[in-house]
Amino acid sequence: MNLDPRDPRPLYLQIMDEVRRALVVGTLRAEDPMPSVRELSSQLVVNPRTVSQAYQELEREGVLYVRRGQGTFVSPDVRADRRVVAREVAKRALLEARRSGLGVKELIETIRKVATEEVEEPLVPASSSKRGDGK
């Protein structure tokens, strides 16, 4: 798990997003144990309160659950919420487009076009040297 230090959104939301992303990618699956609050705060150098808050929210959403005395686990009936992850990606793209003076239609058409071209020439992430892209 990785956080982007430049991302100004509240950290607990960023951690929640990382968990959701891991579920979509498949690196996290039903009944997997989650790192303890202590482990994750140490790894991310994040205030333990922030990690607790993220876990509590995810528990409320039914993504995680607590086994008494054993720690936090991914819910057995968890479904990767692709829509939430897709919405976040879409929001970022839209914001970026607007900043460059592009319209929604222009952006969508271009994404389609680039995706078609990618079959011949795979995309290289422009930000591959940047920290915090997650997995």
Binding site: L11, R38, V46, N47
Partner: peptide
């Protein structure tokens, strides 16, 4: 961060490297 998770502590920390405390 581990210390905070284990022990309830108030930390007052002076620094000119504020970036390294971004998430703490």
């Amino acid at each position: 961060a581990e210390h905070l998770a284990d022990t309830p502590t108030t930390i007052l920390i002076s620094t000119h490297h504020i970036h390294e405390l971004e998430s703490l």
